[in-house]
């Protein structure tokens, strides 16, 4: 095992209600890099993050995070490990009964014995980093979607984690917010040397910051490489996704029991 592999996934298989979501998948996430996991909707990208976070257990294969094999560690060790991992959920997942300030302070209050004035300073710093120090007394319901995601990001970096997982950070955001988030992810990665896993299907934004991309479809890794390598990949499947073509190896029509032509024949 190389020291610069933060996460290693070997022979991962995962089933949900008889549907095979991952079939013998191998992935490596390098330390200090932004690794993007891309693929069409419904390919289980979020499931992959939950597997890495230990919220789901794989049916086969193993996941190793910084030398800890998830299938061998206890519940307590898992929770200890999670303190070093930040995760940005798609919806932000801010605690709706706490203010912005308390949301960011939450992990600090839970995991450290820091006195109040230090927590005060730290939270202000984190909020400053995402540009929302002025919003600290607002409730999550008063925030826009983009602001909620930035607060969630501040919360994710509250304990200075070694790794952050971003679950669809750009989905449903306006271009300005997308730009802000792209800049923030890049900035955090560079300045704090945080390992980042970025799950997304926004090709443009992802390609602009990712160091390495895995492309997943139908439970398999169908391609991997740097953004420019993938863009110029000759494979039809990869081309369809990266360039957003409506028809190709992923068919436009959802498969039916009988073909359209047969159906018409039977009708007559």
């Amino acid at each position: 095992m190389f020291k610069d592999h933060f996460v290693e996934i070997r022979h991962l298989s995962f089933k949900r209600e008889d549907k095979l979501i991952f079939n013998d998948v191998d992935l490596t996430i390098n330390r200090g890099k932004i690794t993007a996991i891309m693929g069409p909707s419904g390919t289980g990208k979020t499931t992959l993050l939950k597997l890495i976070g230990g919220q789901l257990k794989p049916d086969q294969g193993e996941i190793t995070i910084d030398g800890n094999n998830l299938s061998n560690i206890s519940r307590t060790q898992l929770f200890k490990l999670r303190e070093r991992i930040g995760m940005l959920f798609q919806s932000g997942a801010l605690f709706s009964d706490l203010t912005v300030f308390e949301n960011v302070a939450f992990p600090m209050r839970e995991h450290t014995q820091l006195p109040n004035d230090i927590i005060n300073d730290l939270v202000s710093m984190k909020l400053q980093a995402v540009g929302l120090r002025g919003a600290k007394d607002l409730m999550p319901s008063e925030l826009s979607g983009g602001m909620a995601r930035r607060v969630a990001l501040a919360r994710a970096i509250a304990l200075d984690p070694d790794m952050i997982m971003y679950d669809e950070p750009f989905t449903g955001q306006d271009p300005i917010t997308k730009g802000v988030l792209v800049k923030l992810i890049k900035l955090l990665n560079d300045s704090l040397n945080i390992t980042s896993i970025l799950v997304s299907h926004d090709v443009q934004e992802t390609c602009s910051i990712a160091d390495f991309i895995y492309l997943i479809a139908n439970g398999k890794v169908i391609g991997s490489g740097t953004p420019s390598e993938l863009m110029n990949n000759p494979s039809l499947q990869i081309r369809q996704f990266m360039q957003g073509l409506p028809d190709g190896p992923v068919p436009f029509h959802y498969p039916t029991q009988q073909s359209y032509h047969e159906a018409m024949l039977h009708h007559e």
């Binding site: 929770f79 303190e83 930040g86 959920f89 709706s96 992990p107 995991h111 969630a152 919360r155």
Partner: peptide
């Protein structure tokens, strides 16, 4: 249920805080 739907429980779990306890 609302906490579950909005992934608050999952995010708490990912922060290393057990929602069953908290």
């Amino acid at each position: 249920g609302h906490m579950k739907t909005t992934e608050q429980l999952a995010s708490m779990e990912m922060m290393g805080v057990d929602p069953l306890r908290r």
